[in-house]
């Protein structure tokens, strides 16, 4: 079984978020980018664990984006992926999912494992769209994944309990917190990443971009915190009523 792990690139969690061109474009000046943590910590690391346990023969990471995103792909290789593919194009979730589906189908992957969402746009759309394009089974928000022959056993957290599932391959799974633990890239892995294959693929023309961003509106920053002495309940009630207007 070959596993395909789609990775997305997102701004570092401490990055200052701003927009340019009349609030239609994310301002990436001075921003550090990282692999989307859900893709890295859970999907990629779990895929590597399966390979290490002899349950998968190969782990490939795939990224849809321009050349300048290659350091992010190298990091995935440093963590341990065998090889990488970069689809040389960019677009909305539908475009990205289409490219991933197209590559998976043409190259004989039977498990696609990716994060449940990106921490930048949080749309959680890609995984489902990939499954849709391929017409494969789809298990979202999985917290556990194991392989028994041709069957994948999975767990999802649900309100007040755990949902245990199994599915045959091929399968698309979106990973949530709990599936694996973050791995720090080993120095040796970082050095090895230099020589691992990174294939650049021209995007398929079958998947148009459907959406266009009209504008972004930055969230209002948090207002200053008001401290109230713990024995002054009256003031608290008064402020909640008159200032915060929540009671």
């Amino acid at each position: 079984m070959k596993i395909l792990v789609p990775i997305s690139q997102v701004p570092d969690t401490t990055a200052k978020i701003s927009f340019i061109n009349n609030d239609t474009t994310f301002n990436n000046a001075g921003v550090t980018f990282i692999i989307n943590p859900y893709d890295e910590w859970y999907a990629l690391v779990r895929a590597l664990e399966l390979k290490e346990a002899g349950k998968a023969e190969k782990v490939t990471v795939i990224h849809v984006g321009p050349t300048e995103n290659e350091p992010t792909i190298r990091k995935a290789l440093a963590i341990g992926a065998d090889d990488a593919v970069r689809i040389d194009g960019d677009g909305d979730s539908s475009f990205v999912a289409g490219q991933i589906a197209d590559y998976a189908q043409k190259n004989d992957y039977s498990l696609i494992l990716l994060g449940k969402e990106t921490i930048s746009y949080n749309s959680a759309a890609t995984a489902g769209l990939v499954a849709g394009f391929l017409d494969w089974n789809f298990v979202p928000y999985a917290t556990k994944l194991d392989v028994n022959g041709n069957t994948i056993s999975l767990e999802q957290e649900m309100d007040g309990g755990v949902n245990q599932l199994s599915s045959p391959l091929p399968l698309v799974v979106s990973a949530a917190k709990g599936m694996a633990l973050q791995r720090i890239p080993n120095m040796r892995g970082i050095m090895a990443a230099r020589t691992k294959p990174l294939q650049v693929v021209t995007p398929s023309t079958d998947f148009p971009v459907y959406t266009k961003v009209e504008s972004y509106t930055p969230a209002k920053g948090r207002t200053a915190c008001v401290m109230i002495s713990e024995d002054n309940i009256d003031e608290l009630v008064d402020l909640l009523h008159t200032k915060a207007k929540v009671i």
Binding site: P71, R74, Q182, I184, M187, I190, A193, R194
Partner: peptide, 17 residues
């Protein structure tokens, strides 16, 4: 270079974790 920055990040992650 990117590789040196990755080595640096590994050390930072090690301290954090």
């Amino acid at each position: 270079n990117d590789e040196q920055l990755m080595l640096k990040k590994t050390c930072e992650d090690f301290l954090n974790q």
